[in-house]
Simulated assay, not measured.
Amino acid sequence: MKYSFYALMMALSLISCENNDNTIDDPRPVDKSLYLFQFKSYAVKNTVLYKGSNGEKSTPDESYLNNYWSLYQEPAWKKISLDHKNKTIKLFSETSSTDFTYSFTIVNDSVLIKENNNNKPSYIGDFNKNTSSFTLKRTYRYVKKVPRNDQDALLITKSAHFGTTQFENIFGNIFTTPSEMIKAGDQVLWTNIEYSYKE
């Protein structure tokens, strides 16, 4: 009788343990929904220069950029937040007048934003979840077209964009090809810079 009482108590104890509502914590890391990145460093990835009168191509070193962009080493934005829940990326500067917020999508590690009511998303950089880092891609462009005759005016454009510049991005507007750079003062210059941010 004593033995059956203990057997019954053991059985009840086992049933009680099986119905325990306590769960073991999932050891897998939970994906964060909000990242706040701080600027750490920059790297000039490539610089390309075409000069007239024959559109000769060269790849000047980084010091050449100081002639055109004195502040290229510092990004316009010191901090970046990436909000996965609301699908927004915000770029923070030292002054609130240059803070920007965009909606974004991620394809592989590439971050694409919607800007200026453009239907085609713009590539802004790369997000690495494993290292909690973000690489902002910026490209700087300078084009100079000297007058072809007395009626023409000197044309100079200088701009900065998200993403990267390649030959096909810059030729096709002012100059269709380097062979159109027939004057000694004609010039096409671009550089691609990566700004690294870490959490």
Rank of each mutant, 00 (worst) to 15 (best):
R148P: 08
S81M: 06
D152I: 02
Q187C: 15
K183S: 08
N108P: 04
D150M: 13
S63N: 12
A153T: 10
A7N: 01
H161K: 09
V44K: 00
N118Q: 07
N116P: 00
C17F: 14
N19E: 14
L155W: 04
F5V: 15
I113D: 03
F167V: 01
E194A: 15
N117E: 12
S58T: 04
M10Y: 07
N118F: 07
N119A: 15
H84F: 15
F39W: 10
Y72N: 00
Q151G: 06
F127Q: 06
Q187V: 02
S16W: 12
Y142E: 05
P29I: 01
L154R: 03
P60E: 01
K145R: 11
S103E: 11
I15E: 08
C17G: 09
E180T: 03
K2H: 12
V188W: 05
R28P: 00
E194Q: 12
M181T: 07
N67C: 04
M10V: 12
N119Q: 13
L34R: 07
L36N: 07
L154C: 03
F92I: 05
L155C: 00
Y195Q: 03
D186Y: 05
V111R: 00
I89A: 03
G172N: 02
K144Y: 08
K198H: 12
T98M: 14
K40C: 04
V143W: 09
F100D: 06
T95V: 13
V44W: 03
R28H: 10
D31K: 09
T23Y: 09
N192P: 06
Y50F: 15
V44Y: 06
K78R: 10
I170Q: 05
F100I: 10
C17Y: 10
K129L: 13
S58A: 09
K183Q: 14
D83T: 03
F100L: 13
S41K: 04
N54W: 10
K87V: 01
Y42P: 02
N169V: 07
I113K: 04
D31V: 08
S81T: 08
E74M: 08
T95F: 13
I156V: 14
L8H: 04
